[in-house]
Design a protein around this nucleic acid. Structure first.
Lengths: 149, 149
DNA sequence: ATTCATGCAAAATGTTTGCAGCTGT
DNA sequence: ACAGCTGCAAACATTTTGCATGAAT
């Protein structure tokens, strides 16, 4: 018997706690979302992928389902300034990564730095603020765009 | 004779360098933008304020002018996830501040931490990335919303 | 049975664009 | 005179909503 992923369990628990319903669509969207190669899917991209498997799904279902994932802590909502909202699966190892965004080619890469996280938490404490999520984004030129400048 | 602010000078220089034109609207928007109490104006808010002084101004002029400010380095474009783009005047002392955003009441407060900036730069260097701008945003509950939970 | 979810299309939102007339250089 | 700017309305893109039907509890 295949064990459920931790994420799927989180979703099912949230659904039953809130008296929502498990549906085929939610499962398909879940699978596509968590198997998406590369993080930061836009809703449109995910919709296109899901549509290939389940062709009569509607746009709104994808929107609503991503909000649901966000509400149950499975996804972060991100916005890198190109007008489209992106969603990123939350990792369960408690890791958090941040982003380098190239303003020339649009490439988004990730990094992780404990010290930045550490000081962020400290700032929050000093401000009597309870941090739920944090973002660190560095905008600039990636190495390949720098070379071709 | 009243001296021009450094910001106004930057704008005028940019305008002449790019062969653009100085207009009444740009001046009014400039004044309102830099005298806005609180940072992070949305375009709509700024439009409303400008309209009070110069009632036949159009929406698009405000949009276009804020982009102009961004292009000449007078403003940062920000997006805190509520669907509206906000603009923030760039300070001339070279300071950079970051944000605490309350997900309950929406309050945005600012902080500044040199260590976070320092490590951000270091990460960039390791990734052969040239940073132009960076964002650190902590999302969570502010002290008053924590109290009333 | 009841309540929630879906898909569709319509509406709402925020932003951009085309263009005729106007303004600054 | 020329090139750029404005205001307006229309276009656009993304996201939300209303509603009749269908599915899960």
């Amino acid at each position: 018997m295949k064990p459920k992923s931790k994420g799927k369990k989180t979703l099912k628990e949230y659904i039953s706690k809130e008296r929502l319903k498990s549906t085929k669509q939610r499962d398909v969207i879940f699978d596509e979302f968590f198997s998406y190669p590369g993080h930061h899917v836009t809703t449109e991209e995910l919709y296109e992928r899901v549509k290939k498997r389940s062709s009569k799904i509607g746009h709104s279902t994808v929107y609503r389902t991503l909000k649901l994932f966000k509400d149950c802590g499975l996804a972060f909502e991100r916005n890198f300034g190109d007008g489209r909202t992106r969603y990123e699966p939350v990792k369960f190892e408690g890791e958090h990564h941040d982003h380098l965004i190239c303003i020339e080619c649009g490439k988004i890469s990730e990094f992780k730095d404990r010290r930045i996280e550490h000081y962020s938490k400290e700032v929050a404490r000093l401000n009597d603020f309870e941090v739920i999520n944090h973002k660190v984004e560095l905008y600039g030129y990636c190495s390949s765009c720098r070379k071709s400048k």
